[in-house]
């Protein structure tokens, strides 16, 4: 008797950002191609993923409703919702499901959110900052849009390894912090290198008429870091964790203001 329905091939790949392998399952080969292209350099081959997402690729509906991003938790299950995706994730089972169209932006948003949730419980974070490695040490350059994250990334000399020009990935480890490369890009539109290094300093960017580094008071350091953290969840416990993590960070990592003119000599001060 002939089979009435053909078996649907289940495709998957591993996206490993910050040393955390996430398996993405899909039945859509075109979507898989999109992911392979988007996360080139961050594709892993781990047997056991830390998180596994099944992606239901849906038909586009226009216009996409602009409802912002809502991240809530109920009974151990996170719900992630925006105009262009709907996702669920259960940390206990390490599994989740994403409904989205075949585009790289929606899953990118989901991954950022999930990484912030995981990191928040471990004392780490994602931050609006460029980051780079020089002489085996990592440096963060934080600032709002227009502060110079892309500029300082573009000015980096050849011995500097760029981790990201837009969103830095910081994981707490023992007595210090490790910065990882990310595929989350800004204006430079260039994926960071998938490498990591111990974090040596956080610089708060300011553009001025000379290159100089100035110390800043601890309170201002904490406030500035908090202002640059990515966090989406409406969850009091995690908000408190993020708050205390920021203070822990500024007590361990030197934070300074880096004023710079937009030319490559600023890198003479770094590393």
């Amino acid at each position: 008797m002939p089979e009435l329905a053909a078996e649907v091939e289940r495709l998957n790949l591993i996206i490993a950002i910050g040393g955390m392998p996430v398996r993405v399952n899909t039945t859509d080969p075109a979507f898989l191609d999109i992911l392979q292209d988007r996360y080139s350099g961050f594709l892993g081959s781990a047997e056991r993923a830390e998180i596994e997402f099944d992606v239901d690729v849906t038909v586009p509906v226009y216009p996409v409703p602009d409802i912002g991003v809502r991240v809530t938790q109920r009974l151990g299950r996170w719900s992630l919702q925006a105009g262009d995706f709907l996702a669920e994730w259960e940390p206990a089972s390490r599994t989740g499901r994403i409904r989205q169209t075949a585009n790289p932006y929606s899953i990118d948003a989901v991954l950022r959110i999930v990484h912030t949730l995981v990191l928040a419980q471990q004392g780490g974070f994602l931050a609006h900052s460029a980051s780079a490695i020089r002489n085996g040490k990592a440096f963060l350059f934080a600032g709002v849009s227009g502060a110079g994250k892309t500029t300082i990334s573009r000015l980096a000399p050849p011995d500097v390894t760029l981790l990201t020009d837009e969103i830095s990935y910081v994981r707490k480890q023992d007595s210090g912090y490790i910065a990882y490369g990310t595929p989350f890009t800004g204006e430079l539109a260039k994926l960071g290198e998938n490498v990591s290094a111990p974090l040596a300093a956080l610089y708060l960017l300011a553009q001025g008429s000379e290159n100089r580094i100035d110390p800043i008071p601890p309170g201002e350091a904490a406030r500035s870091l908090l202002a640059n953290l990515l966090f989406f969840a409406e969850d009091e416990e995690l908000v408190q964790s993020m708050f205390h993590s920021a203070f822990e960070f500024v007590s361990r990592v030197p934070v300074s203001r880096l004023t710079f003119v937009p030319d490559s000599r600023v890198w003479e001060l770094i590393g």
Partner: peptide, 16 residues
């Protein structure tokens, strides 16, 4: 709420 005193400054973040 989360609260910390740092270098004489008290900072508080609303959990909400």
């Amino acid at each position: 709420v989360a609260a910390r005193s740092l270098d004489g400054e008290m900072m508080i973040m609303s959990g909400r």
